[in-house]
Design a protein around this nucleic acid. Structure first.
Lengths: 198, 198
DNA sequence: GTGCGACTGGGACGATCGTCCCACTTTGAC
DNA sequence: GTCAAAGTGGGACGATCGTCCCAGTCGCAC
């Protein structure tokens, strides 16, 4: 095996771990499974990480950092705020359909973190990050429209996160595209009603 | 140990398993943990169940059957449809706050079922049952009000399930009561707007 | 080139997992 | 009372888990 400095190995192991979690679920993300995915030996694992828990914690932190803003509303000036929001939600839905196992992995990591009290803050910061993304998306949706929100932006963002969560969970279970599209339309209505022309 | 016929023992084991999952998470719901919770020996377990998988499957089926309709809207004739729906959501939220670990267990079981293809139907039927509850609740909310829905009732119910899911997940992470109450108000707005006076 | 620290591979540790076996006790039909 | 069937307890099986040890190999500063 090629000799790889520890920091790079940590990255490679985290990447491998995410692939394993997405493919097989976190319960199958054993040290051996992760090491096999990364093409390493067990010794290399424990040379880079003190324990499996340390890797999983680092994995959660990493996916939270890496998470991209998938809900990017359209900026087309011809569109209404509602249409911009709907465009953003549709973009997220496209991403969800393209990589369902990735979103499922993210949620599994949330539940995993939620089970151990000392890991709870990881889940909280994960959702704080989602809220940031939501805020940015909402701000973008009202840019150059002369429209403001009837609630503080972070509160609207909280609603958007919850709406997105509901979409993700129910679609992952039912895989009902038509229901998802209906829901997106209704969610866009709901959010745009929280915006008010001055 | 008292001698208990196998069918009763199956019930007792399922009850014990649900308690373990709610308290410690499904990853800690090992045969030994379940057996200890039920105060039995391992032999009794495998006398009642062929395998742990059989018990978990039966557990999911049982909680889906047992699940009670927590979203029961008010029937107070003085209330508007929107207020009735909000009352129902508030009732569910009260239940969620009173037994968060139970709701967390239900969701963990969903994700568990979602991981194995042969168990996927269990998750689907779980959400089908939620949809039934939602339909009953929505029907109740418009009783004697001369109001109908602008969408087929089962489609409105799908929206309610997704809205409730979003509420549950985000509250379990953030434990933000105020945000939950705001969200409930907005969700009630959203749903009542799908109802139309004839 | 030498030497030291960084890195690797393989094998092994004890703990815990799901499952099973078998001798034993109790129950209920006859 | 007899006896087959039902139910029980304890201990053991092989597999797999996270972790660790240790001898060995490589890269790099000097």
């Amino acid at each position: 095996m090629a000799r790889i400095p520890a920091p790079e190995r940590r990255e490679a192991l985290i990447d491998a771990a995410l692939r394993v979690v997405a493919r097989d679920g976190i319960s199958h993300a054993t040290t051996r499974a992760i090491v096999a995915e990364a093409g390493m030996s067990l010794a290399s694992f424990h040379y880079a990480f003190a324990s499996r828990d340390e890797l999983i914690d680092e994995l959660i932190r990493t996916v939270v950092e890496r998470a991209e803003n998938e809900v990017v509303p359209s900026l087309d000036p011809h569109l209404s705020v509602r249409e911009r929001i709907e465009a953003g939600l549709l973009r997220y839905f496209g991403h969800l359909k393209a990589r369902p196992s990735h979103e499922q992995a993210m949620l599994e990591l949330t539940w995993y973190a939620l089970r151990a009290p000392e890991r709870h803050p990881l889940a909280v910061s994960q959702y704080a990050r989602y809220r940031e993304f939501a805020m940015a998306a909402l701000q973008r949706a009202t840019t150059d429209s002369g429209i403001t929100w009837t609630l503080p932006l972070d509160q609207v963002a909280q609603v958007l996160v919850a709406l997105t969560d509901g979409l993700t969970t129910t679609w992952l279970v039912d895989r009902d595209d038509e229901a998802a599209l209906r829901y997106i339309g209704i969610a866009a209505d709901t959010l745009s009603r929280l915006a008010d022309a001055r």
